[in-house]
Design a binder for these strands. Structure first.
Lengths: 138, 138
DNA sequence: CAGCATCCCGGGGGATACTG
DNA sequence: CAGTATCCCCCGGGATGCTG
């Protein structure tokens, strides 16, 4: 299709970037693959908290968006290798920066307050900041 | 807390970054604010496709995560200004890169195929690519 | 080994209407 | 002007189980 409508100039290409890179795992997978071609199980090992299903799905989307290339070796024990395409590799710098930023953020701010990790059940005792502290001014 | 458990080192800080920056609008808003302090309506104008609700919510989350500062001027016509914090400004480079990348991606690949924009209901007639084109190899 | 299939859930995200 | 308040829908994401 590629924008049949003619309008919707997207205003801000960041939205497009987020469409491609959105989701919790895309960039993490990308970063993994920056280390070189890897097969499914290697990726899985590198991202212990992702489920197979999610890994598969995200990989497929990344493939559809032209960021990774999937190569199937039809052997007796099936082997599938994933590699970054040129497009995928073009995210090298960005992934590095985001990773560094994430580290730094964790250091200086701790875990983000807004998005509760859901599966990190909150140690019971942290009373939730209640962001009500409005910065009033005149 | 800062990781009381000792384990769960997050493996990849990118996940953290995505928790903070995830969501369709966060970075777009950030980028808007990189232009300087703006009030609600200005932001809204700069991001025509976002709804008030979303703008409010995302701004609140960004505030909670320490990326933007919200200043309320209690005047007769209420005025609220949003500005980036230091932390928010630290994303300058990343936002720029992502924006540039988004532009480039749109140019070279067109709209991302994976994430259907949901509210662009697919013109009915496009039979879904069926990504079956597996890159086989021996 | 590398995956689909299935079931399930929460919340992200949108539209619209109302308010201080 | 700058929000809340509702309602609603979809899909990201997880768990588990089965197969070529």
């Amino acid at each position: 299709m590629r924008n049949t409508i003619g309008e919707t100039p997207d205003y801000c290409a960041i939205e497009t970037a987020m469409e491609v890179l959105g989701g919790r795992w895309k960039l993490a997978i990308l970063k993994q693959l920056l280390g070189g071609t890897q097969r499914f199980s290697e990726l899985k090992r590198g991202l212990p908290r992702i489920t197979q299903r999610m890994l598969t799905r995200q990989l497929r989307e990344l493939e559809a968006d032209g960021l990774v290339e999937r190569t199937v070796y039809r052997e007796v024990p099936p082997r599938v290798e994933y590699a970054l395409t040129e497009t995928g590799r073009s995210l090298d710098a960005i992934a590095g920066l985001l990773d560094a930023w994430g580290h730094w953020y964790l250091d200086t701010h701790g875990r983000p307050t807004s998005a509760a990790p859901a599966h990190a059940p909150a140690p019971a005792g942290v009373p939730a900041p209640a962001h009500a502290a409005v910065t009033a001014a005149e």
